[in-house]
């Protein structure tokens, strides 16, 4: 009996030691991951100078950077950028969700001539760097006069969104066909089935699509910078914030950059954390087999 207790005790000890080690590792990881953001927030309140400095916590705390961010708009117009990005992402989100859901539903549920060919075509088209389409679209839009214009940017984002059908299609595939058939027996047309039967069941993937298509324009540097060549007022936040960090602007704008970064990050982070359940469901449900 004593043998057993001793064995149990030593096993427990080993378990506790491993757990403690794991806890230490996790704490270190959390600290390392969070320090940059702490730095960002702390720096955004710095009052004594506006360039990059070598210490973390400000000597003078002030709201000045935030105020200047919103009011000082002659050269670097942050409120304008924010508005631009907001508009672009809202419009893109609506259009893109419609396109992606329509395409993935069709490819998942309906069988028609050319379906396999279409999927292969989109697979191959997806292998071209998106950049190539962008340059060509830039030329096309220049002829129509839509460059340097938010509508042009929305067009670029939305243009190839049909190719993002893969994850949604995977999700739709997991909804059993028997539902479709039952509805058909009751006399529903495909249109009704889509709107009234399948969509309500697909809430996670709908939210996932809306979330990802809303968040994408916020972080896009490549397309936005090429579309709005030189027109500072039409930048989105990514291009604008990077503009604050160029060699000429850095000494004057660094703290303002931190303030701007905080202003951009908080709503997005909140939105993401609120909807993260759908994001995880989307990624694990549609993107991953089994």
């Amino acid at each position: 009996m004593a043998e057993k207790i001793k064995k149990f005790r030593s096993k427990r000890k080993a378990e506790i030691t491993t757990n403690v080690i794991v806890y230490i590792i996790l704490i270190c990881i959390s600290v390392v991951w969070l320090i940059p953001y702490l730095y960002l927030v702390a720096q955004s309140f710095r009052g004594e100078s506006t360039g990059v400095v070598g210490y973390m916590f400000p000597k003078e705390w002030t709201f000045n950077n935030y105020i200047q961010l919103i009011t000082d708009t002659d050269t670097l117009n942050f409120p304008m950028w924010y508005l631009n990005t907001l508009i672009v992402s809202l419009v893109t989100c609506i259009i893109q969700t419609f396109i992606v859901l329509a395409t993935s539903y069709c490819l998942s549920r309906m069988r028609f001539r050319g379906r396999k060919g279409l999927m292969n075509l989109m697979l191959i088209l997806g292998m071209f760097p998106g950049f190539m389409t962008m340059t060509a679209i830039y030329f096309i839009l220049k002829q129509i006069g839509l460059t340097g214009n938010l509508a042009g940017l929305v067009l670029v984002y939305v243009a190839s969104s049909a190719m993002g059908y893969y994850i949604s299609k995977g999700f739709f595939d997991t909804i059993p066909r028997s539902l479709d058939e039952a509805a058909k027996i009751d006399g529903a047309s495909q249109h009704t089935i889509f709107l009234k039967v399948i969509l309500p069941l697909a809430k996670p993937i709908v939210v996932y699509t809306i979330l990802t298509s809303f968040l994408a324009p916020w972080g896009d540097y490549m397309f936005a910078s090429l579309m709005m060549l030189g027109e500072t007022d039409k930048f989105n936040v990514a291009v604008g914030l990077k503009e604050m960090l160029t060699r000429e602007n850095l000494p004057k704008y660094f703290t303002r950059f931190c303030a701007g970064a905080v202003v951009v990050s908080i709503p997005i982070a909140a939105l993401f954390i609120w909807l993260q359940r759908f994001y995880v469901e989307g990624v694990t449900g549609g993107a991953v087999k089994g």
Binding site: W33, L34, Y37, L215, W218, G219, Y221, A238, L241, K242, V264, S265, I268, A269, A270, F272, I273, Q276
Partner: peptide, 8 residues
């Protein structure tokens, strides 16, 4: 949090 904050 690192995912929620936009990567740019």
């Amino acid at each position: 949090l690192t995912v929620a904050v936009p990567s740019f």
